[in-house]
Each structure stands twice: as C-alpha cells, then as structure tokens.
Amino acid sequence: MKLKVVIGLGLLLVIAVISCRDDKSIEFARYYSSGSMIYQTHCQNCHGAHGEGLNGLIPPLTDSIFIKENLHQLPCLVKNGLKGELKVSNKIFEGQMPAVDLAPIEIAQAVTYVANSFGNKLGTVNVDRVNTDLFKCQ
C-alpha cells in the first residue's frame, strides 16, 4: 500500500516536471533537433561538424559576434547563396556559397541550430521571423 502511494506520487512529480517545460522551450527543442539534421545534410560538408569551416577557404560559424550581428541576414544567405568578400573572425573569405533549396521552416530550423551551437546562444529563430527576413532579402 505504502509503495503504491510512493510510486503514484513519483509519477505525479514526473508529469509535473514535464509539463513545466513551457511551450517556448518545446518549440526550441523541436527547431533545434530538426535543424541539426538539416545542418548535417546541407551545411556540414563545407562548414564542418563543429562549425569550424575550412581554414581560409570556408568561413567558420563559431564567430558569435558575426552570427549575432548578421542573424537576420542568415536566412537570405542560405536561400540565395553568397558571392564576394566576407570578413569572419578577422579573416577575409572570397569563395562562393551555393544557394540551398530549403523551405522557410527548414531555414528557420537550420538557423536555430547554428544560432545555438558552436558557441552561439541566440534562442529560437522561428518561421515567422524567417519569413519576415526573407521578404527583405535583396
């Protein structure tokens, strides 16, 4: 009898803890884990498993100041690619990044992953924000 009470109380506690995770953190976890898969498929070949880039050829994603300052540009860079000079981590890169054919929700997931990995911690970049950013692409 006593044991049943303890187990019941324990279960209640677990449920309470799970529901404590608010909607926001659940949304973040969804974006981040999907983003990790998209990163592996579309970004990792060039930018590396740890966002390290490739020496002077491919820029790293570990420059947290660059990522923070250009967060609203990232969806456009993914969608349209990039050509010309780019200064990251005090190095000039001048190759070409190909456009990646992804839906806005996938871009949002990938950007959320990058913006919260490799030393970056900028929270969820949701699909509404990505749509607004994409609308402003040049």
Binding site: G48, L57, Q96
Partner: peptide, 15 residues
C-alpha cells in the same frame, strides 16, 4: 576549386 559538394570534406580529410 569551385566544387561545392564533396570537395571541402575531402580536403578537410586530406589535410
């Protein structure tokens, strides 16, 4: 040099 697919990962490994 302008290869966007498998070359970067190959060169990273060749390094």
């Amino acid at each position: 040099t302008s290869c966007p697919s498998i070359c970067p990962v190959m060169q990273r490994n060749m390094l």
